[in-house]
Design a protein around this nucleic acid. Sequence first.
DNA 1: AAAACGAAAAATATCGATATTTTCTTCCTA
DNA 2: TAGGAAGAAAATATCGATATTTTTCGTTTT
Lengths: 245, 245
Amino acid sequence: MAHPALTRQESTTATEAAVRKLKHDIMSGVLAPDSQLKMRELKSRYGIGATPMREALAQLAAEGFVHQRAQKGFRVPPVSIEELIDITKTRQIAEGEAIRLAIEHATEAWEEEIVSSFHVLARAIDHTKAGKKDRDHFEERHHRFHRALISSCPLKSLREFCDDLYVRKTRYRRLLGSYGFTAKEVIGEHRLLMDAVLDRDVPRAQAVIRQHIGITADVIAEVLRAKNPVKVTTEKRKRAKTNAR
Amino acid sequence: MAHPALTRQESTTATEAAVRKLKHDIMSGVLAPDSQLKMRELKSRYGIGATPMREALAQLAAEGFVHQRAQKGFRVPPVSIEELIDITKTRQIAEGEAIRLAIEHATEAWEEEIVSSFHVLARAIDHTKAGKKDRDHFEERHHRFHRALISSCPLKSLREFCDDLYVRKTRYRRLLGSYGFTAKEVIGEHRLLMDAVLDRDVPRAQAVIRQHIGITADVIAEVLRAKNPVKVTTEKRKRAKTNAR
DNA sequence: AAAACGAAAAATATCGATATTTTCTTCCTA
DNA sequence: TAGGAAGAAAATATCGATATTTTTCGTTTT
């Protein structure tokens, strides 16, 4: 049976489980940016064989969560301020359009989901103590709220694009641990968003979302720059036993 | 190169070759929409083992070129008018923004690439006889021209999104074989695009690109509807020996 | 007959071992 | 002593076989 290292949830495939866990480990920074992903380590870490491990890597490579070079294996993508800026500006455009469409196609269910996801988010922010588990807890609710804002946008491709950009940016946010906003400020920011959208004020909603996306990125970029003045790329390292669970 | 089954190009991995060929076969309609992709057949068709085949499928599944269901294997994605419309509208928005940015960041190299890719495209259209090889030839040049239009847009994420939408729409175009435009009309359409962009007239360029994207989609949708009044999804079928080469 | 059951067959998912390529060491040479 | 083969070690990519799950198709039961 399959139980070696980590529990494989029932009715789920080994590949799926590996994708989920590997993605999480990359997003949360457990696996450092630019570090090499060696088959040996991955296999034992996630307790599966080469085939599903490789399949998971291929899938994540296609989504951009890992980089691949023929015959050179896989690595965690590096982070760069340039990419953060690119993601941010693109997201300001895409999400601006998505919010406009969402408001133009407003429904009651959409409003309800915004209100309730905001409530849950605000509560999570208040209770968060920056613990590891808490972080996942917060991120899940934060993601849900942002998805809710544009959920009534009828263009699926556009919604998915926004979601992709959201996720890619989240990686940057998470790699920094906490970043100087108080709970009150964070809640306030999101309340502004909710209010503008629920008022169905398109220009204001667009302005607020653009500002929200921009200000967060600015802070992240600043911290990134401070951490690593010139190159962000992590230095070579023999092993990362520390992270090896 | 690119022979029937085997012939793995040097310095290329088996997986990469499989990805390339499988993607082509799906895009060009050699593998019918909604048909099941059986490992046995795929392995022999592309002349590789299970591991790289599976890896290729996983990669294409992440990009949306094949669908996957746990324990049920892989299939060619179905086509639907709804998806075509979704892609079209989203692309009108995304490409409109990308063209605006491209014009705002115009460079000489950008203009040159537009002019030369247009020239090559026009020539290809004139010479095309709708043969199989010719189709690939035309598509390559058509793709190049559309990439050129937005190549000076500084937002990589946005450019890539446009490209993704372009490719997804191309599948619909290709699945229809030819569709009632004369060579002169097609060239004229693209010349309008080129002129508007080179004049650096943002509103006009946006209008033309939106119209260009929309009109093509309208024609495709019409043909699709005619072909398959109710459901587009292909009927079940035991085997597709015809295609199995 | 329709539903329900249960092997047998087929297809998917996974593993362990092997072939291939890259990287690292060591030793030789100019 | 820097440069560079040559061989060893490590890592990647691939294959063939096996375990697991789904599908098929007679057969039985109501």
